[in-house]
Structures are given as structure tokens and as C-alpha cells.
Computed example of a mutant assay.
Amino acid sequence: MSALASEPSTRCALVDLSHDVWQDMLIHHWMPKPVIHDYISREQSAKFLEGGVSFQQVHVTIAGSTGTILQVPFQFHADGPDLATMPLEKLVDVPVVVIDAVGMPEIGPEVFDGQDDLAGKAVLFRTGQDRLWQTEEYYENTCYLAGATIKHLAKAGPALIGVDSKNTDCGTDQGKPAQHELLGAGMGVLTSLTRLDQLPKRGALLTVLPPRVVGMSSFPVRVVAVVPEGADTEGAGR
């Protein structure tokens, strides 16, 4: 039996950490809603194809910060990598560290107690805000990273930062310190994640691959975690 046909030695679970995106979904009041429509419908294509064959082609108009998104340094720093040039080692098979931040409107540096070696990791903050997805409250009340937390992360050097709320910054802070400093340190920032309670605190691997759009700095993405068989997910993120 070839190596390709053999059974893998370790089975894994795949956890999708992304929200769906659809036509006219609820989003922040200042953003345009997604527009998704056929520019060639199945009915139209059936008229010029033969034998009952048909296909669909879709046109999508969407803001870069719709749904679960990845922000890359170019968003706040013109000399930083955009979606097309973000280093793959920061996006593929990145070891995950889940940080419990439930009930913390301001996420302080005390959440890192006992959490060493964050360099090159995907540090994901579980706030529980994803339970409010598609409600007005999701956009009105959000958790954010405290200044000391931002400094700690900038020094620790993760590859990715992620939250299951809509932002890493306080909505009234127009300096946007988390996004400005963490993106400036070369990290990617993921927002509006979900299902972080299905991950172990450590041991999972994260992959997020945006389209290679030149000159674009954020985009809806599908974020997938690979959880090895036997990983302890009991009380994950708690």
C-alpha cells in the first residue's frame, strides 16, 4: 500500500472558526451590506448549453471588514505587507494559544499569567461575544485589549492575534492602539471569530488564507483549526 493510501497515524478534528456571510446580513451601521447576486444564472446558462447542463456565476460587492476578517499590517502601515504579500508562515499551521477573557470588557495583561512562549503563535482571546452575533448588541458593546496587554503582545511576538468580538480596540479610542501597534509589529489580526470553546488551550494548529488581492488590507476569511485526536477540550478557553 502506498503512503498516500495508508491511514494517517493521527486523526484530527477540523473546527471552523468563521461566521457565514450572506446578502443583507446585519453589520455595523456605517458599513455597506454585502450584495450577492447572479450575473449568469443557471436558467440563463441553460439556454446556451446543451444536454441539461447549467452553471452559475456570482457577482459579490463586499466591504473588507465583513464577517470574520483578517487584517494585515498594510491596513495601518503603508509599508507593511498587504493580503498578497503577508508571509505564509504567519498564516498556515500556526500553533494556537486560547486565552480566557470571558466577562472582561477590557482585557488586561493578567490573562497571560502562566502563558509563556507566545512567539510565533496564534493568540486567540475567547470573550464569549460571539453568542451575540447578528444582534445590535454585538456592535454596540465590544471587548478590547488594554494598553498593557497590547504592549505585552508586541513584545511577545505572536504571528496572529484573534478575538471572538468585533474589534481589538475600544470603539471610542480613535488612536486605535491595538490595531496600530500589533499590525505595526507585523502580526495579523483576526476579528469576529467563533467556536473558540471547541479548541484546547494549546495543541491546535490554525490556518487562514486570504485571497491574494494586491493593495487590500482586510478581507473576510475562513479560519480553520486542526485539533489532534486526544487533545483536551474539556473546559476549553475557561
Rank of each mutant, 00 (worst) to 15 (best):
D16A: 14
I40H: 11
G108Y: 06
A122M: 04
L70Y: 00
V35D: 07
G67H: 07
V60P: 05
D113S: 02
L91Q: 05
Q115G: 02
H29M: 11
P34I: 03
V53M: 14
W30L: 09
T66S: 13
S65T: 09
W30T: 13
E106W: 06
S41V: 00
L26V: 01
V21W: 00
Q115V: 05
L124N: 08
H29K: 14
P95K: 07
L118Q: 15
A78L: 10
D16V: 01
T61Q: 04
S54V: 02
V94W: 02
V60L: 04
V58R: 14
A78M: 12
F76T: 14
A78E: 15
L26T: 02
G108Q: 14
I27R: 12
T68E: 09
Q23F: 07
M31C: 07
S41T: 13
G67W: 01
I62M: 06
V98I: 11
G64T: 03
K90D: 13
D79Y: 11
D93F: 13
D20M: 15
R42W: 03
E110M: 13
K121V: 04
L70Q: 05
L17V: 08
P87R: 01
Q71W: 11
A46Q: 11
M104S: 02
L118E: 08
I107P: 06
S54W: 06
Q71G: 06
H59F: 10
V72G: 09
D20C: 10
Q57F: 09
D117C: 01
P81F: 01
Q57C: 01
A63L: 05
M104F: 06
W30Q: 10
V15A: 03
L14N: 00
E43R: 15
I99S: 08
D38E: 14
L26Q: 13
T127P: 11
H37Q: 15
S18K: 02
F74Y: 15
D24R: 11
S41G: 05
G51N: 10
I62T: 06
E50A: 14
V94M: 05
T85L: 01
A63D: 07
K90C: 02
V15R: 12
T127E: 02
K90N: 03
E89S: 14
V53Y: 08
L49I: 05
S45L: 09
E106M: 09
L88Q: 14
P109Y: 10
Q115T: 10
V58D: 10
G108H: 05
I107D: 07
I36D: 13
S54M: 00
E106T: 11
V97N: 12
S41P: 02
M86G: 04
S65Q: 12
R42K: 15
T66G: 00
A46R: 14
H59Y: 07
K33W: 00
H29E: 13
V98K: 05
G52E: 01
F74R: 07
L26W: 05
D38M: 03
I69N: 09
G108I: 11
P105D: 09
F112I: 03
Q23G: 03
I36F: 06
I99N: 00
V72R: 12
K90E: 05
S41F: 00
D93N: 15
D113M: 10
I107M: 06
H28Y: 05
S54C: 06
P34N: 03
A101L: 00
I27N: 13
